[in-house]
Design a protein around this nucleic acid. Structure first.
Length: 858
DNA sequence: TTCAGCTTT
DNA sequence: TCCCAAAGCTGAA
């Protein structure tokens, strides 16, 4: 981004000032000197509410520093010694793991937005200009920077610094288009490059360099016509000779920036530039070498030719160093740290900590208070830091001080939150605030929909006219994504804040809405399966509003190319090819989709159908040649080998499921354990999963097979109720279960201990209610039934059964289910925690024992 | 785990 | 006219 280059406001004890950047030493030439700049800024800001707030924040940092220094003064020498030992140990470990094998590049476009605007309007080229508005500037060109005009500075102050400043409104569509061009080039050097923003990216060019060694020269040769290549690279075979310095008219956007030609580049080998064709002065040919510097230079060259914009780059063994390097020769330059430990340490030695990504103004100030300003200081004080900062922080400091950073560019980071916020002139009317809130929710819902995300936590951010920022969050038990859903949560938060401020109005200048706590993939599948099987004839109702959002069910948010969609495609293909093994019978389709409409949504059922995963839940072994029988046999063996660990694990999963039920019940504030049915088969497991009416939990087939029986035995196991309870029969509620948290015990023993009189025991095999309240007796009955082979018989009745994909038609929820043995992920995906609830659905259930989920495991 | 505030870019 | 937006992290409860 532009911002890292042009640092923002840095408050200090004396107030605050805009931080001076790299070219500050040049400020005096045509612009203003530092002192004058600060004076103007101070005059423009002093006394404003913003300024007051900055001072307040600054005071808070000072207090933190004071507290830290006090802590420091209380440290004993033995504490320090111990810390020293600890950090030494860690230092050694880190040193051992140092990886110098990668070539990581950080590329950053120079004053990107400003450069684009100057390119498109050459009149701006020699004038001080900035992109943004009177309220805020995104970036400025290098002429303006001499006057102290920087990113994150309000335009009106910039105008005071530089009255001739031209402020151009940002045009993000244009920047995105240019960014696309740049990224096309990046991808040729690293197809998995990591974009950080429109103008900045990390690349790992290690593989490219390996390939580059064998790349013929013509593929490293680029021609410039009249100083500018037309969009794209010229044919490699076109070769011409010239003197590059004379004819390469690099689009110099900044007076003080060098041309492309890399005199300023570290370790540049001029021999790599060949100028061979004097007869064709209109065409210049550049041949780039095979080294890392050459590859990066070539990349920058191509960017410049394609966009007429310049980029700076850093090459280093890790991301942290590469980022620092890219700043070293900015603008339009590059820098490499050789891949040797000593080179890294030399580079780090005098590096000011503030240059390191992740160390901002507050951290800098805190470290400065400890006398730490360079990375060497950081290294020397590492023991002290380990005592004063959190683990995360001092580990980070230690990494920095050793010049270590991430050596793999991974797009691991699944997004953790998404938000939108808006600044406006004061809004004090509640009505307008609600309206705005709804608008923000709408925007956010659209953004979420683009990425197919749903989250459980809604955060409202409010900034009042005094610039005081408040965030208020609320986590709900279901994932929200639509405007209605988000608003129903956000408006309650807003209401609470309005109430708190009452009778004074809430005087806001900013409002933001954020969603976090996104469903993990498994949860998504789970939620999807729930909504889809309900979707055909039931609207998914949300707890918050009690209203139905038709969009939520009729037009589900577009998902990223999911596992399901892939499977769907595969399945459709399979069907087309006449494959019958995985085909869903028409009966199932009718059951699952009563409307007989084409199947629009694919549920976990699809996964089960398509992907029988015979991974043993005990030992996690997986064999491709296992069939159901062999798999079951294996599990039996596993269980008999290590009954404790096996059951322990199973039971802990079981507990997990219970916990979720319990949480759900707690959050619904409607009491726990209502309408919970518990299944127990063969004394091994008890588990729960959401049933069709969402108020109601029954054992889920898959979970049961995975966690409970550990075997795929039968289609008819489902829905046989061992032990049920109901809100309507609360006489035992609360006093069952006691404090039994021993999950190592078979669940049946827990159940025996906790089921109270009145439990209904229906054998899952013969489906006959048993005249007993003793679980052990009941379980024995089930075992007998099982041993009688009734299940096998039942299974045999289903003529559509693929031995690998037994199909169960669930009469209760209308869901066709194909069983597989299940695995960890399946089990997780069945967690009821993400289930949507329908509080309106309260079936009257009578004469059931009351067994609370909470009580069950607590 | 949740939430509010902080930090960074 | 007049001082951002978005995301991740931390620490306390």
């Amino acid at each position: 981004m532009d911002q890292p280059e042009e640092k923002e406001i840095a408050p200090s004890n004396e107030g605050f000032q805009y931080r001076m950047g790299l070219n500050d030493n040049k400020a005096g030439m045509e612009g203003l000197d530092k002192e004058k700049i600060n004076k103007i800024i101070m005059e423009a800001t002093k006394g404003s509410k913003f300024y007051d707030n900055e001072l307040k924040k600054d005071q808070q940092v000072n207090q933190r520093i004071e507290k830290m220094l006090q802590q420091k003064s209380q440290l004993t020498s033995s504490q320090l010694k111990m810390a020293q030992v600890q950090v030494e140990k860690m230092t050694l470990e880190l040193e051992r793991s140092r990886d110098l094998s990668r070539f990581i590049v950080h590329v950053d476009m120079d004053a990107f937005y400003a450069a684009v605007e100057m390119r498109d309007n050459p009149e701006l080229k020699d004038k001080p200009m900035a992109v943004g508005s009177m309220s805020m500037l995104s970036t400025s060109n290098y002429v303006a920077r001499r006057f102290g005009v920087r990113a994150a500075m309000p335009g009106f102050i910039a105008k005071k610094l530089c009255p001739n400043l031209q402020i151009v409104p940002a045009n993000f569509d244009k920047y995105r288009a240019v960014s696309k061009e740049i990224r096309e080039i990046f991808s040729e050097y690293d197809p998995n490059f990591l974009p950080l923003s429109l103008d900045e990216a990390y690349l790992d060019i290690t593989d490219h360099l390996e390939e580059r060694l064998t790349r013929p020269e013509d593929r490293r040769t680029f021609t410039v016509k009249n100083g500018h290549a037309e969009n794209g690279d010229p044919p490699a075979e076109v070769k011409a000779k010239c003197e590059p310095e004379e004819t390469c008219t690099s689009p110099v956007l900044f007076e003080d920036s060098p041309t492309f030609l890399p005199d300023q580049c570290h370790d540049f080998s001029r021999q790599d530039l060949k100028c061979e064709n004097q007869e064709r002065p209109q065409e210049n040919v550049f041949v780039f070498g095979t080294s890392a510097e050459e590859a990066v230079r070539e990349m920058r060259f191509r960017i410049e030719q394609k966009t007429t914009l310049t980029a700076s780059a850093g090459i280093a063994p890790n991301m942290m160093l590469a980022k620092v390097c890219s700043d070293k020769n900015k603008p339009n330059g590059q820098y490499i740290i050789l891949h040797e430990r000593q080179a890294v340490m030399d580079f780090i030695k005098d590096l000011p900590i503030r240059k390191v990504p992740g160390i901002g103004k507050v951290t800098e100030k805190m470290l400065r208070a400890l006398g730490i300003t360079t990375c060497t200081d950081l290294y020397q004080q590492r023991a002290l830091l380990s005592l004063l900062f959190s683990d995360t922080s001092w580990h980070n400091f230690l990494h920095i001080s050793l010049g270590l950073g991430s050596t793999r560019i991974e797009r691991d980071g699944e997004r953790k939150s998404m938000s939108t916020e808006r600044t406006f002139s004061e809004i004090s009317s509640a009505e307008e605030q609600y309206e705005l809130c709804r608008e923000l929710c709408k925007d956010l819902a659209e953004d979420l929909s683009k990425e197919g995300l749903k989250g459980r936590t809604v955060t409202l951010k409010l900034k009042n006219v005094k610039f005081e920022v408040k965030t208020r969050a609320s986590t709900v038990s279901y994932a929200v994504s639509t405007e209605e859903e988000i608003f129903s949560v956000a408006k309650d938060i807003l209401k609470a804040e309005i109430d708190v401020a009452s009778p004074e109005p809430l005087r806001l200048r900013l409002m933001g809405v954020r969603i976090s706590g996104f469903l993990c993939e498994d949860d998504k599948k789970h939620q999807k399966s729930i909504t889809s099987f309900l979707g055909s004839n039931k609207a998914v109702k949300t707890m918050c509003s009690g209203t139905v959002d038709p969009k939520a069910t009729q037009n589900p948010a577009p998902q990223r190319e999911s596992f399901f969609n892939q499977k769907r495609a595969a399945r459709l293909q399979g069907l087309e090819q006449g494959s019958t093994s995985n085909a869903v019978t028409s009966k199932e389709q009718n059951v699952a989709h009563p409307s007989s409409e084409p199947q629009q949504d694919f549920t976990e059922v699809d996964q089960i159908c398509q992907d029988p995963d015979f991974t043993c839940p005990i030992c996690m072994m997986k064999k491709s040649d296992w069939n159901l029988e062999a798999f079951n046999r294996h599990i039996d063996q596993c269980l008999s080998k290590s009954p404790t660990s096996g059951n322990g694990e199973i039971l802990s999963k079981c507990e997990d499921v219970f916990e979720n039920c319990s949480d759900k019940a707690k959050k619904s504030n409607k009491g726990v354990g209502k309408d919970v049915r518990i299944k127990n088969l063969k004394n091994k497991m008890v588990t729960l999963a959401p049933s069709d009416d969402m108020d109601d939990f029954v054992i889920d087939n898959n979970t049961m097979h995975t966690l409970h029986d550990q075997r795929v035995k039968s289609d008819s196991c489902r829905d046989k109720i061992i032990c049920e309870n109901s809100m309507e029969n609360p006489q035992v509620e609360g006093d069952v279960g006691g404090n039994n948290t021993d999950v190592s015990k078979p669940a049946s023993s827990l159940c025996s201990a906790t089921c109270s009189e009145g439990a209904v025991f229906i054998c899952p095999v013969c489906n006959i209610q048993q005249d007993t309240s003793d679980l052990a007796v009941f379980n024995r009955h089930v075992d007998v039934c099982l041993n009688n082979g009734i299940l096998e018989e039942l299974k045999g009745q289903n003529t559509n059964l693929d031995p690998k994909h037994p199909v169960r038609n669930d009469p209760q929820n209308g869901m066709a289910v194909r069983g597989n043995a299940g695995n960890k992920s399946n089990a997780r995906s069945k967690r009821p925690g993400a289930a949507q609830q329908n509080p309106a659905s309260k079936k009257a259930k009578t004469q059931r024992s009351s067994l609370t989920i909470d009580a069950f495991f607590k």
